[in-house]
Structure formats: structure tokens, C-alpha cells
Write a protein that binds this DNA or RNA. Structure first.
Length: 589
DNA sequence: CTAGGGTTAG
């Protein structure tokens, strides 16, 4: 029997409904409950409607459209209901709706609180909408919520996402108290905005008790990422120790991150140790191992790992295949690569994405199958992006294929995506076949159009301090010693047969104009500093933002034997291990 | 816990 007056509906019935909402396990149940609520007019019971709304907007039934429909049936939504709805929007695919609702609230003169702002900021973060966020920030100040630490933490993350790290720091500085999450957001801001050196410094400060809180598992995840990008193995090892001290050793995310850090820092055995020690491995663990092996030039082992993964009944995903295909391309396993490329869609229903195509173009291109690579690009269902064309352009340079190189640059121009590096590649293609006229032409074009090359930058991390070098750097406090050391290294290497390469790789245009004098690439400066600042026998680990040039490659090769030092350089795409006069990659690329 | 905020692997 339907109660005559729903508001007076018995306590028992209400509780029953609430427990029904709580235990609901299927979307169809929700629909039934919804119908029941409408039928019994329990919608007017604020406890019920709020509960139902938040249940609907929560995963795994996180369907905003459904929540919106229900919300619209509520006559006078309470602040709590407005907030719940905005929260649902902020986590959905249409975060802007949250802001619309917020504006509607203000228009209606509804009360808002700091949670309302918090959800709105989340919407802005998701949209990376700077203007929207600035408005909310203004509101926060006007509403007097500027000492709400949680709200400010969300605001920091917003600025960080919008690449406004200085504003993020300003918010951080104004926070009345900063807990671990606040520090974590600061770290993630540094990480996102290329301030990795500051990440290490903050971690040290936290450990040293200067921040009033200790690093947690999330802190470690961030710091490990920083170590990965800096090729800072030693620091990463310290983080690993900390993880064990704190008892985080079983956390899957952390282990996966450790595998990546170790393998991308060239320490495959440690990566493997972490992997083996994991009681629960997921697809991420396997993929991290596979791409780690790939990056270290161990293509066969990467394929072995992939097969072992299948035997362990772990289903590969897109990133697994990216790892497998890049393993094939780094190790020149053309046939295997083609096979996996076909298999991924046939056996695993995974349609190749740009990364997979990129690997295939790289694979075919390096193998000299340039036309086939071009065909593959043209056959793509989605529009090829600039990275794909750039990969092919790199292959054109290696194989001195001028005509195709020109065509590729044309494609890049059409995409309006051409960058300085592309012209340098084209220029190098011309110079590799001795077409100096065209070289001059391209150079003039670049000069006339003010096209600047990306400055190469190499870092070396010692004792948690990041030392950064650029071409012909004069900013390091020990620059005099470094240049003296570089001179000495130069004469030692010359004796051992190292000949500077000046014509084949026109890496840096200004040096070219200085009359073919080879400038001191950042890699060399960092190596000289490494020799200077570490005891004999210590491995020198560098990270470079571009691609190591032929000359620096030779330099490192000869140096590894003359100075009996292992040198590990990570550039844009791979890891080069130099030892005893050899490099782990068979030839230069 | 009962409405509810911030960071998070390959």
C-alpha cells in the first residue's frame, strides 16, 4: 500500500530504502529503486534523495546522465545535492557542466561552500581551463576560503596542470599548513613542469625533517619518475631503500615504478630483481619489464618476456604492444615485429594506435625499407601525426634518402608542424650525400624564418644534485676545471684514434657558422665533469633531451676504453651503454 | 564512514 503522505513514511521504510541503495550492485537495481522512489514520492525526503544521488554518481555506476536526470527531479536541491552533482560532473567527461551548474547556483543566490569550489576547481583542472580556474580562485578569496588547505592543494594542482608552476608555488607558500599531499602536489608540479632537480631537493628536505611530514607512497612514485627521467640511478636506489624502510615494498604501483626506474637507468638486473620479488604482477609490471628490456637493446629477451607473460595468462594491452614493437625496432627484428603487429589486432583485438605505427615506421625505416614505411603511413586509418613523419625523416637521414626526406618535410609542413629539428634532419640528409648547395639553402631558409633549434641539454646527477649542461656551457661553477679536463680528454682520445666528426652531423647551426669548429656539446661537458667529480671506475650516467650525435657517440665509445669508465647516456629514445670501446647498440643509431 | 574535497605505475 502506498502511504498517503510520503513525508510521514515510516522510519522503518526509509531505513530499508537506504540499505537498499547502499547494497545495490547493479544498474538495473538502481533503476528499480529510482522507480520506487518516484512511486513512493520519497524524493521529498532529503536523506533519501541525497543518498540516492551520491550513489548514482559514484562508481561503478558513475553515469552523470543518470545523475543529472535524477537531480532535475529534485525540486529544491540542497547545498549537499548541488555539491554532489557538481562533483559528479567534475569527474565525468563533461566537467564544464559542473561550472554551468555552479553559475546557476550563484544566479539563484544559493549558498556555496569550500567544497563547491573544490569540485569546480577539479572541473577546471580536468579541462585545463585557465580562465575558469582563475575565476574560481577569485571566488575562493572573496568567500574567505583561502586558508582551506585541501582546497588550496586542489588549486595548486590546477595551476600545475595549466603549466603555471609559479602560481602553484605561490599558492603553496600561502597555505597555512602543508601536509604530505600538499608536498606531493608540489613535487608533481615540479615533475610536470621540467623541474626535476627540485623534486630531488624536496625529497631530501622531507627526509631531513624540514617539511614537517614524511614522504609517503605517492611521494615515492613521483620521485622515482624524476629519477627515471634524470637517469639518476643512485638516487633511485635511495628511494628504493626508503620504500623498504617504510614497508611499502609490496605496493604494486611502487614496484612497477621501480622496475621502470631501474631499467631506464640501465640497471636491468635490479629491475628484474624487483620484478621477481613481486607476489602480484599485473599487466603494467610485465609491460614495464618488456619496454625496459627493449630500451636496453635486449630485443630477444623482451620477446621472451612477452611470451612468458602470455603463459602467465596476463592479457597484453596497448602499452604492452608498444613495448614489444619497440623491442623489435631497437633490435632490428623486422619479421618478428611485423608478426606481432598483425597479431595484436587479430588475436587480441587491439587496433594499432599512433605509437604502434610509430614503432613500425621506425622498424621498417631503420631496416632501410623506406618505401614500405611510407606505404604503412599512408595506409593508416587515423591521420598520421608529426611524430610519425619525424620518425621516417630520421630514417631518411640514416639511409641518405633525399627525395623521400623532402616529401616527408612537405607532409610536416602541411600539418603545420615543422620544427627546427626537422630542418636539421633534412639538412643532415643533404650533407650526408654531399649536396652542400641544398645544405646552404636550408640553412638560409632557417635563418630567414628565424627557426631556432631546441637547445640540447645534458644532466648528470651526483649526490642528489643535478648538474645541467648546454652547448658551450659557461655557467657551471667548475667550468675552468671542466674545460681543462675536456682538453686533456681530447688529446688522450686522439692518441687512441678518436677523430672528431665535423661534416656528417650538422647538429648545431651556429657552430657551423663559426667556421666548422665543432662546439662542445653538452654531452661532452657532462662527461668531463663526471670524470672530474667521481672516483676512477665510477659509471657516468647522463640524460639528454635530444638525440646523441655521431661525434659524441664516438667520443663516449673511445673514452669508455681509454678511461676505463662505463658511460650510460640516455637520449630521447634509447639507452646507450658504452664500455670497453663499444656501445650496446650495434651501430650509431 | 553514512555527503562531500587534494597527489598516484608501464
Amino acid at each position: 500500500m502506498r502511504p498517503a503522505n510520503p513525508v510521514s513514511c515510516s522510519q522503518g521504510a526509509s531505513e530499508q530504502l537506504i540499505s537498499l541503495i547502499k547494497s545495490c550492485a547493479h544498474e538495473s537495481h538502481l533503476l528499480q529503486i529510482h522507480a520506487h522512489i518516484l512511486r513512493t514520492r520519497s524524493l521529498e525526503d532529503p536523506t533519501i534523495s541525497l543518498r540516492f544521488l551520491s550513489r548514482v554518481s559514484l562508481s561503478p555506476f558513475g553515469r552523470v546522465s543518470y545523475a543529472r536526470r535524477f537531480f532535475s527531479q529534485i525540486k529544491n536541491p540542497s547545498l549537499a545535492e548541488f555539491n554532489t552533482m557538481i562533483r559528479a560532473y567534475s569527474g565525468s567527461d563533461s566537467p564544464e557542466e559542473g561550472l554551468y551548474l555552479y553559475r546557476e547556483m550563484r544566479r539563484l543566490g544559493e549558498r556555496t561552500n569550500s567544497l563547491t569550489s573544490s569540485f569546480c576547481i577539479k572541473s577546471c583542472t580536468k579541462m585545463a581551463s585557465l580562465t575558469g580556474g582563475l575565476q574560481i580562485h577569485g571566488r575562493i578569496v572573496r568567500d574567505g576560503h583561502q586558508s582551506d588547505s585541501l582546497l588550496l592543494t586542489a588549486l595548486m594542482d590546477f595551476y600545475s596542470i595549466c603549466c603555471k608552476s609559479e602560481q602553484a608555488c605561490a599558492v603553496f607558500d600561502e597555505m597555512p599548513e602543508r601536509d604530505t599531499v600538499a608536498w606531493n602536489v608540489l613535487i608533481s608540479c615540479y615533475l610536470r613542469n621540467c623541474r626535476t632537480r627540485d623534486v630531488l631537493a624536496v625529497f631530501d628536505a622531507m627526509i631531513g625533517g624540514e617539511c614537517g611530514c614524511q614522504p609517503d607512497d605517492v611521494t615515492c612514485l613521483h620521485v622515482l619518475q624524476a629519477c627515471t627521467s634524470l637517469n639518476a640511478l643512485e638516487f633511485g636506489g635511495r628511494v628504493h631503500e626508503y620504500i623498504q624502510e617504510r614497508g611499502y615494498g609490496d605496493a604494486v604501483k611502487l614496484c612497477n615504478s621501480l622496475i621502470t626506474m631501474y631499467s631506464r637507468c640501465g640497471s636491468m638486473d635490479k629491475a628484474f630483481m624487483v620484478f621477481k620479488g613481486m607476489r602480484v604482477k599485473n599487466v603494467v609490471s610485465w609491460s614495464a619489464l618488456i619496454s625496459g628490456l627493449a630500451m636496453n637493446g635486449k630485443g630477444r629477451e623482451a620477446i621472451e618476456a612477452y611470451l612468458a607473460m602470455l603463459r602467465a595468462n596476463v592479457v597484453p594491452d596497448d602499452q604492452t604492444f608498444t613495448g614489444v614493437l619497440s623491442a623489435c625496432s631497437h633490435s632490428g627484428l623486422v619479421e618478428e615485429g611485423m608478426l606481432f603487429f598483425e597479431e595484436m589486432s587479430k588475436d587480441f583485438q587491439r587496433m594499432p594506435n599512433v605509437h604502434h605505427y610509430g614503432c613500425m615506421v621506425d622498424l621498417l625505416g631503420r631496416a632501410g625499407l623506406l618505401d614500405q614505411a611510407y606505404e604503412l603511413i599512408m595506409s593508416m586509418s587515423s591521420k598520421p601525426d608529426s611524430t610519425i613523419w619525424r620518425t621516417l625523416l630520421g630514417a631518411c637521414r640514416i639511409h641518405r634518402h633525399v627525395a623521400l626526406g623532402e616529401r616527408v618535410v612537405w607532409h610536416l609542413t602541411e600539418l603545420k608542424a615543422q620544427e627546427a629539428g626537422d630542418y636539421v634532419l633534412l639538412l643532415n640528409t643533404y650533407s650526408s650525400v654531399g649536396d652542400w648547395e641544398r645544405v646552404t639553402e636550408v640553412r638560409k631558409f632557417m635563418k630567414d624564418n628565424g627557426i631556432q633549434t631546441t637547445p640540447g641539454c645534458t644532466t648528470i646527477t651526483l649526490n642528489g644534485i643535478v648538474h645541467e649542461f648546454t652547448v658551450d656551457d659557461v655557467s657551471h661553477p667548475r667550468q675552468n676545471e671542466i674545460y681543462t679536463m675536456l682538453d686533456e680528454i681530447g688529446s688522450q682520445l686522439k692518441i687512441a684514434g678518436y677523430v672528431p666528426e665535423i661534416s656528417s652531423e650538422l647538429h648545431n647551426l651556429s657552430s657551423e657558422e663559426k667556421g666548422y669548429r665543432l662546439s662542445n656539446h653538452s654531452e661532452k661537458l657532462a662527461i668531463a665533469f663526471g670524470i672530474l667529480a667521481t672516483p676512477p671506475g665510477t659509471t657516468i650516467r647522463l640524460a639528454n633531451n635530444l638525440r646523441i650525435c655521431v661525434d659524441c657517440h664516438n667520443f663516449a665509445k673511445v673514452l669508455s676504453s681509454v678511461y676505463d669508465r662505463m658511460v650510460i647516456i640516455r637520449d630521447r629514445s634509447r639507452l646507450h651503454h658504452f664500455q670497453g670501446g663499444h656501445c650496446s647498440c650495434n651501430d650509431y643509431w
